[in-house]
Nucleic acid binder design. Structure first.
Ligand code: FES
Ligand code: FES
Lengths: 151, 151
DNA sequence: AAATATACTACTAATTTAATAGGAATTAAA
DNA sequence: TTTAATTCCTATTAAATTAGTAGTATATTT
């Protein structure tokens, strides 16, 4: 499971992606309300994303946050990583939260390690080819599909 | 990440799988030492696996645990599930730990949900085709490979 | 009987994550 | 130049989860 922090980050960035073309920026409060995220919590998340160079901010009244890259270029795996979420199922196969398995004598000889590497690769493959733009596109498709059903 | 509990369970079952043919059973203490797992913790894990019908036990002196199914038929996904480990990256796409996303208005219209479903499917696909027997086989292959390298 | 196991339940400790608090700094507009 | 709106930053608290332990009952073999 990824932390809520990472999920909230994805939601917030999706929100910003939607206004990217108009070069608008959104305030924390706006995003928090839109996406049902606790405002103060979101504040720390956006700060983290800004320090990680994923978003930009403008201070003062009428300030806010905005994407610094095109929604096509921001992929889910980097958002999860930037917010400290592990993708792998075991620490010994995690790129960013690597920890040795004290109970396994040799990582290179461990069958479980080997399988979990494959799982990680499969997950990362999907998460790093899916961008914010893709996410929005998917939602449009899902909406069309559900409208067709209703008929 | 899956809990340590699940990792320990896989290790312990792999241990039991290795003696399956000889119809032997192993004591908790033996497995704990072999696999570097805290004995008392392993006790609770094996109990859970027994209550879940994955292993059998024999009480009393010379007692111990043994597999009730062939190592070919016990797959990683069921071990992880039996020990309460989530495989999905979000509760809203978890089969066994499902929880609604309070912040997303409609699950069917959520792009993130959609992507995370794919990730879950990919992970489960690997984990449910890998059995204890496969794990042991993999380790044999890894050993051969590392021996060749050393030459 | 003694020794060696599992069965069971409850508890404690440790860690992590989620969320909040509160004020400083910045900017735009009244 | 004051006021209102906003980000910036750090510390703290609260909540939840997980890891691990303790202790005793029960069963089986020798
Ligand atoms: S090395 Fe990590 S599971 Fe064995
Ligand atoms: S419904 Fe779970 S992420 Fe949107």
């Amino acid at each position: 499971m990824i932390p809520k922090r990472s999920k909230y980050a994805i939601q917030a960035l999706k929100c910003l992606a939607k206004v990217y073309r108009e070069k608008k920026h959104l305030s924390i409060a706006t995003i928090a309300e839109e996406e049902n995220i606790p405002r103060k919590f979101l504040e720390t998340i956006l700060l983290q994303l800004r320090n990680g160079g994923m978003v930009g901010s403008k201070m003062g009244a009428t300030g806010g946050y905005f994407l610094v890259k095109h929604p096509d270029e921001i992929v889910l795996s980097s958002i999860i990583r930037a917010t400290g979420g592990p993708i792998a199922l075991l620490p010994c196969v995690s790129l960013n939260f690597y920890e040795e398995c004290t109970e396994c004598p040799h990582e290179e000889l461990c069958g479980l390690h080997d399988v979990m590497l494959e799982v990680r690769e499969a997950s990362i493959h999907i998460l790093s080819k899916t961008s914010l733009a893709d996410l929005i596109l998917r939602e449009k498709k899902l909406l069309r599909k559900s409208e067709n059903k209703r008929k």
